[in-house]
Design a protein around this nucleic acid. Structure first.
Length: 425
RNA sequence: GUGGGCGUAGCUCAGUUGGCAGAGCUCCGGAUUGUGAUUCCGGCGGUCGUGGGUUCAAGCCCCAUCGUCCACCCCA
C-alpha cells in the first residue's frame, strides 16, 4: 500500500522549526499590540464570489490558483488565497466599519495552487495588518513604521529595504492603462511573449517585465507619474515626508505594481536580495475602493501582509538561527524501576508547582544508560536520579550534566529551594 | 502551465566499463549490573521513488510516470 504523504506544497513544520515560528509570531504580536492593533480571526473557507469580486476576475490567483470546490449543498467554496477579503467581509458583516476607525491584524494559512519553489508554497502563512476609516497618509506611514520596527526586533533590518510607489486613483490608472495599451499595441512585435499576453490580462504588469527588449521599449512609453491625479500626488508626497521625518529610508520604484486589483494610491514592498527569486517579504498598499466594491459604504483602507515562510528563511540566513541544539528542559528526572517511577511523577509535579522550571520526566523505561543518554539529549542542566536507594531515603542524586561539578544527594524536601537557588540567574 | 537538477537505510551521502547493497550520523546492546556527553566492540535498519523495457545479469542503460528542489509565469 502506498504511503500517505503530505499534499504537494503543503509542509509540516517540525519541532526543530517551530521555535522560529513562535519567535516570529510573538515578536509580531508584541509590536502590533504596542501600536494598539487588535487581532481578528476569520474562517479559512469563504464563498468563492468573495475572492472573485475582491481580487479581480482576471488575475492569476482567481483564474488558476484557487482551491475551489463544491460544498455538499453545491455552494462554491474557496480556501482563502489571501486575507484582506475575509477581513473586510467580517468587518462589514459585523458593523465594525460604521463610523469608526479600525486597526486590525490576523495570522494564518493561505492557499494557492502554484508550483512550489523556494519561499513559495501551496499552503503558506501570512500575518496581515489592515486598517479602516483613515484616509490620510499618516496611517500609511504608521504601517511602514510597524514593519521597520519589526525588522529591527527580528534582527533582519539590514537585509530588507523598502520600495514605494503610488498607483493613483482608479480614474488616473484607467486612463494610463488605456494609453499604455495603445502605445504597446503599436509595438507588439517588440514585446516578449509574456508581455504580449499581459496586454490583455494585466497591462500594468508589463512595467515589471524582466525582458530587456521590453524594458527598452518602455523607455518611450507614457510615464505613469504624469497621469497621477493631484490628490494622489499630494498623498504620496506627504507620505514621503512622514517617512523622511521618521528616518525611514525608501526607494521610489515607479514600476512597482501590485498584483491584486483592489490597490490604489500607496503601494509598498519590503524586499530582500537574499532569498533567490522570492524577494518580497512583506507587501501592501491602500485599497480605498474595496469595501464599497464588496457592498459596504465607501471606506478608506490600507494594509499589508508579510510572508511568514519567507521571513523565517530570512531569519535563518541572517540571524544564524539554525545553529544550537534546542534545550528542551531544565531538569531531567530519571527514575529507575516501577516504584521510583510512581514517586518521580509526584516529585515532578511538585517541582513544577514550586519552581516554574521545565521538568522532563524519564518515561518509558529502558536501561540506565539509555535513560542517561536521553537526559543528556534533552539539553537539561541537571539530571535528578531516583533509584531504590534514593527512594528509601527520600532523596535524589542531583548530577550536573553541563559542568564537571560533583553530583550530590538532596532530600526531596530541600529540592525545590536547591533548584530555585541554582537556576536563579 | 513551462524549463532544468536530483530521487540509494530514519538523516547526510558514496556506489568504478552493467557483475554479492555500502559509509558516516542516529538508535539499541556490550566494554562499565546505577552515571550521559569522549573512546572501543557488536547489532537493528533497503520495494535503490514507481511501472515497463534491453541484458545471462540493471542502483547504473532506454521509455514512461510520480515526488522533490530551483527557475519562469505569478505572488507574501
Amino acid at each position: 500500500m502506498a504511503k500517505i504523504k503530505a499534499i504537494r506544497g503543503m509542509n509540516d513544520i517540525l519541532p526543530e522549526q517551530t521555535p522560529w515560528w513562535q519567535f516570529l509570531e510573538e515578536s509580531t504580536q508584541s509590536v502590533l499590540s504596542s501600536y494598539g492593533y487588535q487581532e481578528i480571526r476569520t474562517p479559512i473557507v469563504e464563498q468563492t464570489d468573495l475572492f472573485k469580486r475582491s481580487i479581480g476576475e482576471v488575475t492569476d490567483i482567481v483564474e488558476k490558483e484557487m482551491y475551489t470546490f463544491a460544498d455538499r449543498n453545491d455552494e462554491s467554496l474557496t480556501l482563502r488565497p489571501e486575507g484582506t477579503a475575509s477581513c473586510v467581509r467580517a468587518c462589514e458583516e459585523h458593523g465594525l466599519l460604521f463610523n469608526q476607525v479600525q486597526r486590525l491584524w490576523y495570522a494564518g494559512p493561505m492557499f494557492r495552487y502554484e508550483r512550489p519553489q523556494k519561499g513559495r508554497y501551496r499552503q503558506f502563512h501570512q500575518i496581515g495588518v489592515e486598517t479602516f476609516g483613515m484616509q490620510g497618509p499618516d496611517i500609511d506611514a504608521e504601517l511602514i513604521l510597524i514593519g521597520a520596527r519589526l525588522w529591527k526586533k527580528l534582527g533582519v533590518d539590514q537585509a530588507v529595504s523598502l520600495q514605494l510607489n503610488s498607483l493613483g486613483s482608479s480614474v488616473a490608472r484607467q486612463a494610463y492603462k488605456e494609453d499604455l495599451v495603445a502605445f504597446l499595441s503599436k509595438h507588439v512585435d517588440e514585446l516578449d511573449a509574456d508581455s504580449r499576453r499581459r496586454l490583455q490580462s494585466n497591462p500594468l504588469r508589463i512595467l515589471d517585465s524582466k525582458d530587456p527588449k521590453t524594458q527598452a521599449l518602455l523607455h518611450q512609453a507614457p510615464d505613469f507619474h504624469a497621469y497621477l491625479d493631484d490628490e494622489s500626488r499630494q498623498h504620496f508626497q506627504q507620505l514621503c515626508e512622514y517617512l523622511d521625518a521618521a528616518g525611514i529610508p525608501y526607494v521610489i520604484n515607479p514600476r512597482l505594481v501590485r498584483g491584486l486589483d483592489y490597490y490604489g494610491k500607496t503601494v509598498f514592498e519590503w524586499v530582500t536580495d537574499r532569498l533567490g527569486a522570492q524577494g518580497t517579504v512583506c507587501a501592501g498598499g491602500r485599497y480605498d475602493g474595496l469595501v464599497e466594491q464588496l457592498g459596504g459604504r465607501a471606506t478608506p483602507a490600507v494594509g499589508f501582509a508579510l510572508g511568514v515562510e519567507r521571513l523565517i528563511l530570512l531569519l535563518e540566513s541572517e540571524a544564524g538561527l539554525a545553529a544550537e541544539r534546542l534545550q528542551q528542559a531544565d531538569i531531567y528526572l530519571l527514575p529507575l524501576g516501577a516504584e521510583a517511577s510512581k514517586a518521580a511523577m509526584q516529585l515532578a509535579e511538585g517541582l513544577r508547582n514550586e519552581t516554574g522550571l521545565r521538568v522532563l520526566l524519564g518515561c518509558g523505561g529502558g536501561s540506565f544508560k539509555s535513560q542517561m543518554k536521553r537526559a543528556d539529549k534533552s539539553g537539561a542542566e541537571i539530571a535528578l536520579l531516583l533509584g531504590e536507594d534514593e527512594l528509601s531515603q527520600q532523596r535524589v542524586t542531583a548530577k550536573p550534566l553541563r559542568s564537571g561539578e560533583e553530583q550530590q544527594a538532596i532530600s526531596w524536601q530541600a529540592l525545590s529551594s536547591y533548584l530555585n537557588n541554582r537556576f536563579k540567574s
